[in-house]
Structures are given as C-alpha cells and as structure tokens.
Amino acid sequence: MNEPKIHPAAPQYAWVFAALVALTGLEVGASYLAPQVRLPLLLIFAGAKALLVVLYFMHLRFDSRIYAGLLLIGLLLVSPLILIVALITPAG
C-alpha cells in the first residue's frame, strides 16, 4: 500500500478530462436517438466515463490492488442484485 510508483503527468490528466467532456457531449447527442439505439450507447458511454475517472483520476490503475478490491467487493455485492431485479421486474 505504498504510494503509487507512477503518477500520471499533467497532460495525461488533461487528455482524460478532454475525453470525459467529449463523451458527455456524445451522450447528450445520443439521448435524442431512438430508445432501442440510445440505451446500449449511453450505457457504454457512461461506463467508459466512470472507468476513466476511477482508473486515472482516482489512480486505481497505478495504486495498490487492495483499494481496487475494496471497490470491487461493493460492486460484486450489489451488481447481481441489480441484474436480477432488472430481469424479474415486470414492465408497467
């Protein structure tokens, strides 16, 4: 759990920031598409943005695996529940 050995340089953060802004723009554009088209696109865009923040801004890519493990435990606890409920909930 020592300090991360590699700190991304400032330009790398700027690229991540630019990618996040670009993805947000794409998301807003995609929101005007037909529902069956926009749903997968928006989930991919949101997932990519979340990953960029977690891996680079939160340094999980460079930091101890223990931190990633703590986050994964939370995800593993709640993801199956969300998936099951999404599958069994009848549409209104």
């Binding site: 703590l70 986050l71 994964l72 435990i73 939370g74 995800l75 606890l77 709640v78 993801s79 529940l81 969300i82």
Partner: peptide
C-alpha cells in the same frame, strides 16, 4: 467508498 457503492447501488 466500497460501502457507498452498495448504498447507491441499492
């Protein structure tokens, strides 16, 4: 934050 994932996930 791991706990917060569960909180917001719920």
């Amino acid at each position: 934050l791991g706990g917060e994932v569960v909180f917001f996930g719920a």
